[in-house]
Amino acid sequence: MILIAIITLGGIGVVSSGLLYVASKKFEVYENPLVAQVQEALPAANCGGCGYPGCSGFAGACVGAQSLDGLLCPVGGAAVMNRIAAILGKDAAGVEPKIAVVRCNGNCEARPRVNRYDGARNCAIAASLYGGETGCSYGCLGYGDCVTACTFAAIGINPATGLPEVAEDRCTSCGACVKACPKGIIELRKKGPKSRRIFVGCVNKDKGGVARKACSSACIGCSKCEKECKFDAITIADNLAYIDPQKCRLCRKCTASCPTGAIYELNFPPPRKEAVAAAGQVSEEKTN
């Protein structure tokens, strides 16, 4: 009895292992071993921030490319790119650390509701339907598509303001939220020395009066900041100011000049008293 069992089971084992061997040979897919090495060096977040489908796609692209210019793993940053460069014997392109910033500060007080949205809570759906619950058709809808898109839990809606906030220590600047936002509010900006940066927290392109009526913290395109800036970092287009992060020297003059408090500065030492009054409460919340 035992003998029969041993023979049967042994026979099944031999036949199966033979089949597995044949299958593994026949269906083998050749892969450059370098790809596996590069993939090992990557953070394995599979966030797609590099523009390729997951880390293995990016690894393949790195191995296949002539030079590493234009290839960047935003999550790993310079360190990872240097390691990849070492594996492949290619030069790594310079990397500048970036971070996501939310360019809307139309919180519940600044931007009163004019209607009530009752559809599926999803920004893309609301945006394809109409301009949004407030008078500002450019601002944040607040249904959190950016939150869903983020693989690192680095962005979340603040229930008090109804607006997304970025957790700086977790943001890897993969850009998933930038792509997810149907209003194009989130921007990847230079992280800046000591994480200090200044930006316009508004994307409303309506004329000043219209924008102001819809939201008290809107940029009205008055160009006061443009005149104030000594480095030509600020440009006005479509009634909206934009601060070029490459040119901005973080002198903070524009912040004080803005009549609606639409320019925000992050991670600066606490401003002097008169500046607090000018910048208003909203920016304080943002700084904290």
Partner: peptide, 13 residues
């Protein structure tokens, strides 16, 4: 369920 809300958006995408 808001079936059409999502389907319409997905159709556009």
């Amino acid at each position: 369920r808001p079936l059409l809300d999502h389907i319409r958006m997905g159709k556009g995408k």
